[in-house]
Simulated scan of single mutants.
Amino acid sequence: MPFVLEPESYVDDVALDGDDLTGQDGTDARIDTCTWRAVRLDEVVLRRARLSDTTLDTVSATTLDVTSGDWLDVVVRDSRLGGVQAYDADWRRVRITGGKVDYLNLRDARLADVVLDGVTVGELDLTGARTKGLVLRDVAVRELVLDRATLAGADLTGLATGALRVLRGVAGLRGARVTGPQALDLLPALADHVGLAIED
């Protein structure tokens, strides 16, 4: 019998491989100790869902709604995701490794010990996000939005600033760590923020 997500359901120790959950609704679900591999999650809704000790491996989704989700010890590995709505999320010890995300919306999210490693992101929206222990490692982001973000102590030394085409909310970088070469890449945006004219 095929697995079906349902609102407010409790999903414990479920291993899926190649399942298609397109369009299913897991609002307010609790998902513990699961491994989902090569699962299609197109238009899946996991609003306010609680995920813990769970791995999403090589999953795919055109859109994925995990708004206000509570994630603890979650790994997303080598996945291909389109638009991910994760605003107002609470993520602790979450790791996204490899793969590609077209749009990752983490507006007003609370992120503790979150690591993005070897992933390509079209747009990363951290507007209003509060982070602690955020690490970007070998990450290419085309558009980065940091309005009202709190990135104090964030390790951005692995951000491929050469790939960055749009940076908004430069003040959100306050307290983050970057390398010297990254600082040079960011100089035009920083100068524009403080009204500094740079002449050759």
Rank of each mutant, 00 (worst) to 15 (best):
E8T: 05
L187W: 11
P188S: 07
G118E: 01
L164R: 10
D88S: 09
A171Q: 00
D155G: 00
V4A: 14
E143M: 05
D192N: 14
V59K: 10
G99M: 02
T97P: 10
R137T: 01
A152N: 15
T67R: 15
T97D: 14
R177L: 11
R37S: 14
V135W: 09
Y103L: 15
P181M: 05
A38M: 10
V114W: 13
V121N: 08
T179G: 10
R174Y: 11
C34W: 00
G82C: 05
L136K: 07
A89E: 04
T150M: 14
A176L: 00
R40F: 10
T63Y: 08
E8I: 01
D113N: 13
E43H: 03
A15L: 08
D155S: 00
D102Y: 08
T55Q: 07
L72E: 11
T22D: 13
R142T: 12
V66T: 08
P188F: 08
D32P: 03
L106K: 00
S68G: 06
L21M: 10
V101T: 04
G128A: 02
R95W: 13
V178T: 07
A163T: 11
V74R: 09
V135T: 06
L104R: 02
D88Y: 11
R177V: 07
P7R: 01
P7A: 00
D90T: 05
L196D: 13
L164T: 04
L126V: 03
G26F: 02
L56K: 06
G118P: 00
L56I: 01
S60Q: 10
T131V: 04
S79Q: 09
R148D: 14
A160K: 07
L41C: 01
V139I: 05
P181I: 01
E6V: 11
R95N: 12
L173Y: 03
T27Q: 12
